[in-house]
Design a protein around this nucleic acid. Structure first.
Lengths: 122, 122
DNA sequence: GGCCTGCTTCGACATGTGTCAACATAGACG
DNA sequence: CGTCTATGTTGACACATGTCGAAGCAGGCC
């Protein structure tokens, strides 16, 4: 565990191109599968609060200890953070004693792109 | 397709003020409860496809018969449309033999506002 | 080394959710 | 009025999900 940490090094091209805006064309089954995962990740109140806590925290990252005051047990907090990480919305990094979570801007942008304009056009 | 299209005429006051952007401040439990409902509604692939089909349809509305080709049975389509309606994302109106569903722009705007900027700031 | 703190994983449980077949309802059309 | 088509509702069932307590792992500190 002491050797190099293999970082993703996500290039700007790697921005999730998941899908066109919702109102551009009917979504394909595959697109919907991908996009629904992201929405579902934010479809739980506890996860939404955790995510918001991380997103609004200084520097865009927060230690678990800083955000675990959402009314559920600590294992549950960990469970939800894992879900958010699996959905690509958060990334985590251990720094000494604490584990820090950070928002993944690319995925957020993708979701925003999905919604933006969806109610505007006809 | 030959009859009149009744446009929504929603007043601007009706915009759902559900919550601040995700990165502005940690969400309260109540806010998260409300917002999570909307995300959860789009957190299913079938619902996402149905919604996208309505949103991308001409005039922003579509008859059930136009969008029910998503690979599940008709009752299931009806069930999901009901869920989307309960979440405030769609509204329905019976016109003669057919029922037309239409996107609710205000809620879409609210969701977009939640996400917009969430990955941009720090 | 031994312990203490922070976080994750495991096992179990209750509840929620997606799905379908069968039935019910609403208009249109004869 | 009877029937046909288009949607919605009900009941049932399998599966996913949220939650917790207990145990495990990682790293700092004495």
């Amino acid at each position: 565990m002491s050797n190099a940490k293999v970082l993703p090094l996500l290039e700007p091209e790697a921005v999730v191109p998941c899908c066109p805006p919702l109102n551009e064309r009917p979504m394909s089954a595959d697109e919907a599968e991908v996009a629904a995962k992201m929405f579902k990740a934010l479809g739980d109140p506890v996860r939404l609060r955790l995510f918001s806590a991380v997103a609004s925290h200084e520097g865009g990252e927060a230690c678990v200890c800083d955000i675990s005051d959402v009314g559920v047990s600590q294992p549950t907090v960990s469970h939800h953070l894992k879900k958010l990480k699996e959905a690509g919305l958060l990334s985590s990094e251990r720094r000494g004693t604490w584990v820090y979570y950070r928002v993944e801007p690319a995925v957020l942008a993708a979701m925003g792109a999905l919604l933006s304009g969806a109610g505007v056009t006809a």
